[in-house]
Design a protein around this nucleic acid. Structure first.
Lengths: 246, 246
DNA sequence: CAGTGGTCTAGACCACCGT
DNA sequence: CGGTGGTCTAGACCACTGT
């Protein structure tokens, strides 16, 4: 009555049962079988359906909750994580002001067009030669002053029509999820420092030679699939990029 | 035979049993009852001693492992996390070179002295007026060139004799743990960009006006007790500060 | 081989939520 | 109130480690 034997898997599997359960449940989100915001069946229903015990389902759901794929609320149920403008800023935007309050920048201007991907972009986004991308250039501001300039590059295949969107949304990842069914699950940033040239000085209303924080970001969807590459230069006179170590 | 009733706690407790168990076990590390590197009793022994079930101990140990307080190895046992120069770089040092390999800087020079804490330092380290600190100034290099200059400030109370150490160790946190029984458990960093002045240019062998990445770091021990404050300026010509998002 | 952590099960009670 | 996730227990088997 212990150990693993199951009615659903045919191979010895190599992975622990809970990991296989998790993979199946993740797939349901990935394929759109379960949509963002949706209530999913409770632990006993899933356990019954998959032929495992409730504790095993629980461990799978726990890991998925830790990875922010699910949200569990006692007394209500388990829901597929849904991106909102606010949740996006909290999760993926690390700038804070002098007092430590999170910064929420607004778009000052933006333009987008469809281009053929440059080699560097193809490499980051793992695209084939000749693939098209949507390239967005925009300046965002905070507290009445320009804060950063961003060059955002995404595969055209994934986001058809994005370049023609009348107004590029200020927070993109919730838009990606709601309009294109692309869920951003994580990413990585690489930071360094540069001095403002003529172009940056114009964008950000600072003197040429001013120090800027440069942030290169790659964001991923399920299976570490790259869906966005972004290069930002930030005027950090009244801002700090905060990192928690541990 | 379910629910919580126990032989060890007197109050209804408010915290789940596993959280109380965890608090007790953390205290054993904090007080030095269990020392870094030490093998601790197995799950059943702890469960028996604390009057709870093995599963409850397991949940406590699992959280402590996630927080890097413990290391568990199947077939061997559970050990108190021990800092080493290598583990410290992996956990708390986020710089990588152009190829993405972690950078491990060596100390080029360092000097230390005991001073009265400045107000800003007292605030970060939560010290009383007039408290003494050890202030270390050093330059570290990588690939044959200076990489960063650091000003490190720690409470003198916690680290008596540190200023008189003949050679300040390159990696401090393992030294703190082994010599002073102070375990660094986490911290936070705030980044911005500056341009090199005369002083920084001399330290780092770059031209005045060069862009530098500035990192302000506060490190904590148990109970979020601050034990170090550090201000670094980094020449990032061939380096990037890497952050994982998500 | 014995001992450890890792997985899995089955079933109970508790705390919270909406109706 | 019934249904959900959260906690707790007791016991079993599996996989890895060192002797």
């Amino acid at each position: 009555m212990a150990g693993q034997d199951d009615a659903t898997t045919t191979v010895p599997a190599l992975l622990p049962l809970y990991a296989q359960v998790k993979a199946r449940l993740v797939a349901r989100i990935q394929t759109g079988d379960w949509k963002p915001g949706q209530l999913i069946p409770n632990e006993f229903a899933l356990a019954d359906e998959l032929g495992v015990s409730q504790g095993t389902v629980r461990k799978a759901l726990g890991e998925m909750t830790a990875e922010q794929l699910l949200v569990r609320r006692q007394g209500r149920g388990t829901f597929v994580q849904q991106h909102t403008p606010e949740s996006m800023l909290f999760r993926f935007f690390n700038f804070h002001d002098a007092v430590g309050e999170p910064i929420s920048p607004e778009t000052l201007w933006a333009k987008a067009r469809v281009c053929v991907a440059k080699p560097a972009e193809r490499s980051r986004l793992r695209l084939a030669a000749g693939a098209q991308v949507v390239r967005i250039s925009r300046v965002r501001g905070h507290g009445g002053r320009p804060f950063d300039h961003e060059t955002i590059v995404v595969p055209h295949d994934l986001f058809p029509g994005l370049a023609e969107t009348p107004e590029i949304p200020n927070t993109l990842y919730d838009h990606f999820q709601q309009v294109y069914a692309v869920t951003v699950t994580g990413g990585e940033e690489k930071l360094d420092a540069v001095v403002a040239g003529e172009r940056e000085a114009g964008w950000l209303d600072v003197a040429a030679g001013s120090p800027l924080l440069r942030v290169e970001r790659t964001m991923f969807s399920f299976d570490e699939k790259p869906v966005e590459w972004r290069l930002s230069v930030c005027a950090v006179a009244n801002a700090r990029y905060a990192v928690r170590l541990g």
